[in-house]
Amino acid sequence: MAKITLDIFRFDEAVDVVPHRDAVVVDIPETTTVLDALETAKADVDGSISFRRSCRSAICGSCSMNINGITGLACKTPCNTVMDETGAIKIDPTPNFQPMKDLVVHMDPFWDKYARLKPYLQPSDSDSAHERERRVSPDDMKKLVDVANCVMCATCYALCPVVSVDPAFAGPAAIAYAYRFIEDVRDGQRKERIAQISEDYLWLCAHCYACSYCPKHVDPNDRIIDVKRAAIKDRVLMNERGPRHALVVTKWIKKVGMLHETELIAGTIGRFNVRGLLKVAPLGLRMAYKGKMPPMFLKPIPKVDEVRTIFDALEVPVS
């Protein structure tokens, strides 16, 4: 048994203007999960401590919260892995959400991201044409099962820095869910779905990999890359800045072995997009004034062949 101090964010939107914190001490084995520690605190000390929970086995996705600065499922986090040397654990609601009461937050913006996906199978043929199941190979299904492990706990959404600066960004979870339909061989709306998620700012993802901390190993970070690849492969909304940027970066690295910044600007904005180019011209002029104008022409680095070999080994053929 250990004395563990839960330092809990307290707030009730109906009465409080500002939040405060309460320290609650519980005497429990230190391998207890943070969720069970909270349950003990609520049962034995203060019944008003509020949090969502149900399954306590990492499948319902209710108990995502911020534990010592890291967001995760409280039911999957043993106290001894997070408490400090004094036995204290700081518990806050998930970031990127509006608090409602203590650790309970308003989830609606998160669910809205799913609703925009039209998240249901839309086959190209009618169900009545199939007396039995539609046939799908085990491998095609396996891809989807890995994503279907997502429990919609919103941990990735809470960790995402792009969501924090642009709430319109679909976020990692919804993009992974879009992948689930885009890659479903039974679905007939692949292009429309790629277009929809592109419009929901797919290309804003900066690949910081914050969402690679997924309690269910769905790895939305990799699914985002998969969806971007699908967009390029199917040539959906290719004239937008996102795909143009991705393509021009790779093109020049392959060619010269390093980033070609002047080409990058022209390639992303469009060589003939005069208005777009004029918009960034002041920046270019300032850079030139400070002597930081990138070179117009680049020579390939020595042994650029080796860079190309990497591309050859990794590149998924784009048809």
Partner: peptide, 21 residues
């Protein structure tokens, strides 16, 4: 009912021939 679920997109594991395992 299983076929209904499958038609609605349920992700069942499959046999090598593509039918529900």
């Amino acid at each position: 009912q299983i076929i209904w679920l499958e038609h609605r997109g349920c992700i069942f594991s499959r046999l090598p021939d593509g039918r529900i395992a």
